[in-house]
Amino acid sequence: MSDFEHDPVMVDEISDIFDSVPAGTVVDATLGGGGHSYALLSRRADIDILGIDQDADAIEAALERLTEFADRVRVSRRRFDQIDEALAEHGVTEISGALFDLGVSSPQLDRAERGFSYRQDGPIDMRMDDDQQWSGSDVVNGYARNDLARVIKTHGDERFAGRIADAIVAARPVESTVDLAEIVTGAIPAAARRTGGHPAKRTFQAIRIEVNAELEVLPDALDSAVAATVPGGRIAVLSYHSGEDRIAKQRFAIAAGACDCPHDLPCVCGAIQTVRIVRGVAKRASAAEQERNRRSSSALLRVVEKTEPIPKAES
């Protein structure tokens, strides 16, 4: 058995969400270790999974975990904004839904050589696809001071981004994750280090997001999933970062027919509603799950259901 073991977040809630979708193909756009897919396949004999992941280790582990459902599982090693290409690769023209479990998985964090962890010593890598040339070291050691500060501020919501960028630039070259974590920690005032978890958490998150272009590719990925989904199908997003959630909220609002026209006048902007926001689903993991799986504590769930196209003026 592969050592890529991952406890899927909100797996019962996700299973409930997809209980009502039409029979057909569900895209697991972030396949990981296959935990969510296993739950969906176990619950629905009339669906199959197209799993997408850019991490070769994750795909290997998922295929092993899903062996009993081998005739209902297809995979594509791609980034999740390449949904259209994955569908074409497997001859799929429409889907019954899609799941996005964003961020980094526990096995990636736990492997020092992957460079995601500020607690373990390893190279500053942070690539989800190890065939990619660009790595965390290129950001840490190559970005100009102002660009580095912008990344840390924008992707990490870090209020001491300028101080951290100054410290990193002064210490270059920075070779290891432990060295980077120490530099970041030393740049943050002592009083601010006493709360909020590890002082380097936000900076490592920011660099990882930059390396993998996670926020850049998410809008197109969500739009592609909505376009490919049949009426009655659902798209669910588990996000762990305010930027991810903001994008999911915005793209879903647009698909739900959001427009700037006055509410008391007919819509003239041409907005079309293609989804409805699914209400009444848990937005966060239960207290028990948060206690058991610390990754779930920051998770936020958003869900939409595909509809027949409805002009905003008629909705």
Rank of each mutant, 00 (worst) to 15 (best):
N141H: 08
I152Y: 06
G122C: 09
D110V: 10
A112M: 13
V174M: 13
F116C: 11
A187I: 09
I164L: 07
V139F: 05
A98G: 06
Q120G: 03
E182N: 15
S135K: 07
A167P: 10
R172I: 09
R127K: 03
V178D: 07
A161P: 00
G162D: 06
R193T: 03
I152A: 11
G136T: 04
W134Y: 15
V174H: 13
A167L: 13
R193A: 13
G136D: 12
G186C: 09
D129T: 04
E158F: 10
R193F: 10
P173C: 15
V169S: 10
D131R: 14
I124F: 02
R145G: 03
E113D: 15
D110I: 04
G197S: 10
G122N: 05
V151N: 07
V104K: 02
T185C: 08
V139W: 04
R163S: 11
R163H: 09
R194C: 04
Y143T: 00
R145N: 04
L109Q: 04
D121H: 04
V174A: 13
T154R: 15
G186N: 15
A161W: 11
P123T: 05
K153A: 15
N146T: 13
L102R: 04
D110A: 12
I124Q: 08
N146V: 08
L109I: 15
R194Y: 05
A161R: 07
D121P: 03
S137V: 02
F100V: 05
A192E: 12
G162S: 05
